[in-house]
């Protein structure tokens, strides 16, 4: 069975996942809109998913892809609850700027 791994070495997937993960970290750190911070977290999760899939295909093991499936389920749950919390925050303070949420800061 042909697959992309016959042509592309696994290191390229490692590099791509590293770049995507770093972009996600960058977004979490420099953006102040909470929704975009959420999207960057999704980006990081996807980078890890891609890596797990690449390794799972390379080793011919189903475990990695099953793990990706579970990560997707957790991400869906997290986004549902997180966005509900965001809407509630917006209803309370009329903003989704994370710098406004400093009540727990010492």
């Amino acid at each position: 069975m042909e697959t992309n791994l016959n042509y592309v070495p696994i290191e390229h997937y490692l590099g791509l996942a590293a770049i995507l993960f770093t972009i996600g970290v960058l977004g979490v750190l420099i953006r102040r809109n909470a929704i975009i911070v959420f999207m960057c977290i999704e980006l990081m999760l996807n980078a890890v998913n891609l890596l797990l899939t690449a390794f799972s295909t390379m080793h011919g093991e189903a475990g990695g892809q099953v793990m990706v499936f579970f990560i997707m389920a957790v991400a869906a749950a997290e986004v549902a609850v997180g966005l509900a919390i965001l809407v509630m925050i917006y209803n309370n303070i009329r903003s989704v700027d994370i710098n406004e949420l400093n009540k727990l800061k010492w």
Binding site: M1, T3, N4, L5, Y13, L16, I35, F38, M39, E42, N46, N49, L50, T53, A54, S56, T57, Q65, V68, F69, M72, A75, A76, V79, A80, L83
Partner: peptide
């Protein structure tokens, strides 16, 4: 597309349904 190239058809389907379908609509 990367999943498809890696021969992970099931993950491709789930990914498109869950992320592009559900999560993005939620966003």
């Amino acid at each position: 597309g990367h999943y498809l190239l890696l021969n992970a058809q099931f993950l491709f389907a789930v990914h498109i349904i869950v992320y592009a379908g559900a999560i993005m609509v939620l966003f």
